[in-house]
Design a binder for these strands. Structure first.
Length: 429
DNA sequence: TTCAAACTAAACATAC
DNA sequence: TGTATGTTTAGTTTGA
């Protein structure tokens, strides 16, 4: 067994525990997690006009769930807020992300990030709207997030390229012919390996305990609290409520927590491991869960177990397509060898077009004057407005997640109705 | 001590 | 021609 993937050994001892604690408390302070307060509320007697059924039909909970999701969403990317991806969207969480990493102890400028190059690349690519980046933009992202590399020997760029070439997780996308800025290719994350990357990322020192707070366990507890409140406001007896909870929420969410096979994808394409083949274990799980189609974005939904996230997110049909999936047809690298150079993904033009026709840099591709690659979440720096596409995608994701929650809630609602009816009959007897 | 993962350096080829 | 990019090989470091 090798070291923990993606963690540079020299940084393990530097995990800022205090920041973790701060981060955890920050999460609980975040915006609206009304459930915490709700759960503490004394059991409410049923208000006539607000039966559980009625509540199911009003959309207030959607708003609450939206807030919850907003908080659970990890920036636009859904990765652990402790990862650099988290602060992509803003600098409102100074305790997290690179800011956290760079922060009080001022370690980051002189210390290596606690992420392997694979994870850095992964995060950089995931950060991009189209989930594809040229190597130059990957450099920029890493530089923006980790100033350490600004002063580090240039060998790290070589390492990045080395990783891109050798790591199966990354797929090269040939640009369309005849376009400007045609130097180099775009690099994407192989959706097949995203769960593994996510798991590797989850193992990073900064991914805990915050990510735990965003895990399906945490989501489960939050949802459960919410449902407890609902049940408390109904006239269902406690025993029935418990049964309902156990049979609906718990089952629904805990199913999402089956762990990934430990074998990760961060094995090398060639010299990094001859025994490597496509992650059959992951495929097996996918095959066992027909709905668990690869959903790159959904991988992040709960920032925890990636397969779990996939499963959860797979139910959120609206969020089931990432921009990558929409634009590219993935061809496993093992099928390479085509002399036509059409390896990896097959672009359907949108990506290149968007890349090159995006002078504002909304796509994240537009070269930025140096220093240039504008760090969206860098403290003290202006945050560019998200593009319509970004907003649209985020809305889609949010909608998908809400649909998922709606499904749970609807299911619970019907269960409540059934239980109430039975309870009523029982009383009549 | 062994092994595998990750890192680093370097050489080389290719495209712009 | 110089630079950026991509591939490959080899060696080193590190932790389990």
């Amino acid at each position: 067994m090798g070291p923990v993937i993606g963690m540079t050994p020299d940084k393990r001892a530097e995990t800022p525990g205090a920041e973790k604690v701060a981060g955890l408390s920050q999460i609980y302070k975040m915006g609206s997690l009304p459930e915490a307060g709700d759960a503490a509320r004394p059991k409410a007697t049923l208000v006539g006009s607000e039966s559980a059924d009625d509540e199911l039909t009003n959309l207030n909970w959607l708003h609450e769930s939206s807030n919850l999701l907003t908080n659970l969403r990890l920036g636009s990317e859904g990765l652990p807020m402790v990862s650099p991806l988290y602060d992509i969207e803003g600098d409102e969480m100074p305790s997290f992300g690179p800011a956290c990493y760079q922060n009080p102890e001022k370690k980051s400028a002189t210390s290596k990030p606690p992420y392997s190059f694979s994870l850095l690349i992964y995060m950089a690519i995931e950060h991009s709207p189209n989930k594809c980046l040229p190597v130059k933009e990957i450099y920029s992202w890493i530089l923006d997030r980790f100033p350490y590399f600004a002063t580090a020997p240039t060998g790290w760029k070589n390492s990045v390229r080395h990783n891109l070439s050798l790591n199966k997780c990354f797929q090269k996308v040939e640009r369309s012919h005849g376009k400007v800025n045609g130097k180099g290719s775009l690099w994407c994350v192989d959706p097949e390996y995203k769960p593994n990357l996510m798991q590797a990322l989850k193992k990073q020192p900064f991914s805990s305990p915050q990510s735990a707070a965003l895990s399906p366990h945490y989501l489960s507890s939050v949802l459960k609290q919410r449902q407890v409140q609902t049940l408390q406001e109904s006239d269902i007896d406690a025993a029935t409520a418990m049964i309902l909870l156990n049979t609906s929420i718990e089952q629904e969410i805990l199913e999402c927590e089956k762990p990934l096979p430990l074998k990760t994808s961060l094995q090398k394409k060639r010299s990094y491991g001859s025994a490597f083949s496509a992650p059959s274990a992951v495929r097996l799980q996918e095959s066992q869960s027909p709905t668990a189609s690869v959903d790159p974005k959904a991988d992040h939904n709960y920032s925890a177990n990636s397969v779990a996230a996939q499963r959860c997110a797979s139910r959120a049909s609206m969020s089931s397509l990432s921009s990558v999936d929409e634009v590219y047809e993935f061809i496993p690298k093992s099928s390479h060898g085509g002399s036509d150079g059409s390896e990896g993904f097959h672009s359907e033009e949108e990506t290149d077009a968007e890349y090159e026709e995006d002078p504002l840099g909304d796509s994240g591709y537009a070269p930025q004057p140096h220093g240039d690659s504008t760090p969206k979440g860098q403290p003290g720096q202006k945050i560019p407005k998200p593009s319509c596409q970004e907003i649209d995608e985020e809305l889609k994701e949010a909608a998908g997640s809400l649909l998922h929650l709606a499904g749970i809630r609807t299911c619970l609602g019907s269960l409540i109705s059934t239980a109430k009816a039975q309870s009523q009959k029982h009383r009549e007897k």
